[in-house]
């Protein structure tokens, strides 16, 4: 249990005082992973920095080219926000599969990303959307590709005190499909997941991106399959694409499913996605 929780309302205040706090400090947003980590005995930090009410982190806004989604935006908000529905519909679609309503009301998109889980539904959608992540360290920003700093389960390449400020999704008129296999109909963790964003021009696929969850140490993109599908008729390309996507992954057998099953599901999902277009 941390000795205390320090709450912030602005980034300015945060950067002003953060260095003075004990060095075993950790950010707290929704807490739906952090509190569990604590009760499992895995969190030993002495202070938590509550960033869930920093205004900048709760923003969802647009400019000419992009939309910005703050890291402390609650998962439940993604479902109905008009900007997200219009420009990042994969994120809206993931919500109904995402944990339980009570978790969705507490958990944040930034936390889903920071936890670096291979089965993260929000990250699966962000990856297919080719989102970028905006990081902030002592008021200095850098913007990187969403998957570039995710190194494996619970492993993310952030510098000390570096804060996930939000996500940038470019405004593209793409459609999306979100599919998730879990052990029961709702409130489950993905055995495998697939998210696909694409355009359809005169019956041909364009600008395809496909992300997969729970089949590798982190959420991954199926780049060879994406390349193959470019310019193809979706139903005609189905057989080859399903074969290709299986070659791109080598999932593990663990407590939630088997390697073989995950392979099969990814290919069934891709086939069903392509059939539905």
């Amino acid at each position: 249990m941390p000795e205390y929780i320090e709450k912030y309302y602005t980034l300015k205040d945060l950067w002003k005082s953060v260095k003075k706090l004990p060095s075993d400090r950790k950010y707290l947003a929704g807490g739906t992973d952090l509190v569990i980590s604590l009760s499992c005995g895995n969190d030993k930090s002495s202070v938590w920095l509550d960033i869930s009410d920093i205004d900048r982190l709760k923003e969802i806004k647009e400019d000419g080219k992009n939309i910005f989604i703050g890291a402390a935006v609650k998962i439940s908000e993604l479902e109905s926000n008009p900007l997200i529905k219009k420009w990042a519909s994969a994120l809206s679609e993931c919500v109904k599969y995402y944990a339980s309503p009570s978790i969705r009301n507490t958990a944040t998109l930034g936390g889903n990303y920071a936890n670096a889980s291979p089965c993260a539904d929000g990250v699966l959608a962000l990856a297919a959307l080719r989102a970028k992540v905006m990081l902030n360290l002592y008021d200095k920003r850098r913007v990187v590709d969403i998957l570039s700093i995710v190194k494996g389960p619970k492993k993310i390449d952030l510098k000390k005190d570096e804060l996930i400020e939000g996500f940038i999704v470019s405004k593209e008129e793409r459609k999306s499909i979100f599919m998730k296999m879990m052990h029961r109909k709702r409130f489950g963790i993905a055995k495998a997941g697939l998210c696909m964003c694409y355009k359809l021009e005169k019956g041909k696929l364009r600008d395809v991106s496909i992300s997969l969850s729970s089949v590798a140490p982190s959420v991954v993109r199926a780049k060879k399959t994406e390349e193959y599908l470019e310019g193809k008729n979706p139903s005609k390309a189905q057989t080859k694409a399903c074969q290709l996507i299986r070659e791109e992954i080598s999932p593990l057998t663990d407590i939630r499913s088997t390697s073989d099953y995950r392979m099969r599901i990814v290919s069934v999902f891709l086939s069903r996605a392509l059939c539905s277009i």
């Binding site: 052990h183 029961r184 109909k185 709702r186 409130f187 489950g188 963790i189 407590i255 939630r256």
Partner: peptide, 14 residues
């Protein structure tokens, strides 16, 4: 899996 994350019970939707 001594927990409700990985010991999966059916819920009302099932």
């Amino acid at each position: 899996n001594p927990n409700f994350t990985d010991y999966v019970l059916p819920i009302s939707t099932d």
